[in-house]
Simulated assay, not measured.
Amino acid sequence: MNFALTEEELMIRDSARRMAGEQLGPLVATLDRGGGRQEFLDNLRSAARAGFASLCMDERYGGANATTVAMALAIDEVAYACPSTAVTLALTNMVTFILQAFGTDEQKDRYLRRFADGSYVSGAFALTEAGAGSDPASMKTRADLEDEGFVLNGEKIFCTSAEYAGLFVVWAVTDRSAPKGKGISLFLVEAGTPGLVVGKAENKMGQRGSATNTVIFEKCRIPRSALIGRLNDGFRIAVAELALGRIGIASLALGIARAALDRTKEHVKQRVQFGQSLANFQGLQWMIADREVDIEAARLLILNAAAKRDRGEPFAREASMAKLFASEAAHRVTDTAIQLHGGFGYVEDAGIERLARDARVTRIYEGASEVQRMIIARHALQ
């Protein structure tokens, strides 16, 4: 299979690399310590205006009309410098994907350009609930139809970017008598809508620059025009979104892994013990070699899933494979990085322990590794 990148894909990758190195990297330590929020938002707005929040969006709405491969490359490069920015951009690209794929012309005209020009620094998904994480079909948030529109009531958790998102994509039950997963619909809710309450940000282990909030809907009234797609068809849209989202998170995990391994290679070449560089010890060389294989295998799985989507082929199985392998590989790479840095890897100054913390959640969100194995097994046994 030919994985040669097009001229446009190379241009997007290189542009993302420059932006990440110049704007995002210098802020990452500050974000990890809880500061730099305004600079973070400014960087998101700048990235949006450069096209990184609307990579696969049609040009008529201000998007880059890029390939899924290009999106994966860009998220990888951004994550190499700042995983918190990468997860925000990956999620925003998923919001614009849903809008473009399932929204009405009126919805697309109203909202898509706001992502492309930076008016919205991010979008947010309101899907997960306390009792509906890996099993989103068990959600309890409901949207009751009244004469003038819908009334949302319920609570969502782990909503990335909720406190600064301009637009929420919200899943809710619209037919409580329907079989599980069949009576769910999807809605657009603008930030500031009465009845939409954003809770305080969670104090997280990693990716601390990205806010993660509880979102509560208390008699939140939205018009009928807020419905995306057909009534009671929202779960199907969620499944389609999650497959693409897994390519984005796999790419994010890859970027973290590459950053950790690059720092580790420099460290073992410079660190001298027993009168010679650590890079001269065969046991350490083999550890590096295994992690190089992890990174290359993750890259190829990601590109394969992205290329299949670009060709219009089914790609859910490949996306799950890429997400599973890349996130688990990021764990192995960051753990090896700490080990080869020794005590330096365990303290804050080297930045290696932060990468390990940032990598950990990639095995959980957008479908935990166990869920990915279930999906892969289901395809294998069909």
Score class of each variant (00 low, 15 high):
Ala132Asn: 08
Gly209Lys: 15
Val347Ser: 14
Thr214Trp: 01
Pro314Glu: 11
Val170Ala: 10
Glu59Trp: 07
Thr85Gly: 12
Ile364Pro: 00
Asp233Glu: 08
Lys323Gln: 04
Glu106Trp: 04
Ala29Asn: 10
Gly183Val: 05
Gly199Ala: 00
Val121Glu: 14
Asp117Val: 11
Lys269Thr: 14
Gly192His: 13
Arg33Asp: 04
Gly342Ser: 06
Gln23Gly: 05
Met71Thr: 12
Val170Asp: 07
Ala29Met: 08
Ala319Arg: 03
Leu278Phe: 05
Gly154Met: 02
Ile338Thr: 06
Ala322Ile: 00
Lys269Leu: 09
Phe97Met: 10
Cys56Val: 13
Val215Met: 01
Arg17Thr: 15
Glu313His: 07
Lys182Asn: 04
Met139Gln: 12
Arg113Ser: 14
Gln382Tyr: 05
Leu196Pro: 04
Tyr80Ser: 11
Thr30Ala: 09
Asn153Cys: 11
Asp310Met: 08
Lys156Cys: 01
Leu31Asn: 09
Gly209His: 13
Ala64Ile: 03
Asp294Phe: 03
Cys82Val: 07
Asp358His: 03
Ser251Asn: 10
Ala298Ile: 00
Gly123Cys: 15
Leu196Lys: 15
Ala377Arg: 15
Arg291Cys: 15
Ile216Arg: 14
Leu301His: 06
Gly245Ile: 00
Gln382Pro: 08
Thr193Ile: 04
Ile216Asn: 01
Asn153Ser: 14
Phe40Ile: 09
Leu355Val: 05
